[in-house]
């Protein structure tokens, strides 16, 4: 309970201690969410790396028709979709950590984090859309 909250407020003062309010949240107000997602997506990619490499190596040297046929098959599309979602989520969090470590101007930092989000969403959406299009065979 802070001074400002205990004086001049019509509400009864909060019973929560300052520690209780910030515990598990921290400066980002989202706590360890990003830390945990970074680990989840990292483990996901580690599990997916062998099938993904097999898919990519299968495509080596094939022409468009062959590649499009393989990429359009359901299990392969699902493997690649999972990998793309995990990797882009992972890299979005990773780049945000890098920005927060090195960019100290508040405005530039916010702009960089925003650009990071735009880039990651655009790359993810483009890749996912391409895979769905290949799956639909249009």
């Amino acid at each position: 309970m802070t001074y400002s909250e205990s004086h001049g407020s019509p509400k009864p003062p909060s019973m929560r201690t300052p520690l209780g309010r910030v515990r598990n949240l921290g400066a980002a107000h989202s706590g360890t969410t990003d830390f945990w997602r970074q680990r989840i997506t990292g483990v996901a990619m580690t599990l997916l790396i062998v099938p993904v490499l097999v898919v990519i190596l299968t495509l080596v040297g094939r022409n468009h028709a062959g590649a499009a046929q393989i990429l359009g098959s359901l299990p392969i599309a699902i493997i690649l979709l999972l990998f793309i979602i995990a990797s882009i989520w992972h890299m979005k969090i990773g780049m945000q950590v890098v920005i927060e470590d090195y960019v100290h101007s508040e405005k530039l930092k916010l702009a960089s984090i925003m650009a990071n989000n735009f880039f990651c969403v655009a790359v993810a959406l483009a890749s996912i859309y391409a895979l769905l299009k290949l799956s639909s065979g249009v």
């Binding site: 468009h64 590649a67 499009a68 990429l71 690649l80 793309i84 990797s87 882009i88 890299m91 990773g94 780049m95 890098v98 790359v123 483009a126 890749s127 859309y129 391409a130 895979l131 299009k133 290949l134």
Partner: peptide, 20 residues
Amino acid sequence: TGIALYVGTLLLAWWLIAAA
């Protein structure tokens, strides 16, 4: 390597878009 992979994702996206 993380930053390099970040940029390199463009290659992966380009490849998939081209295939589509």
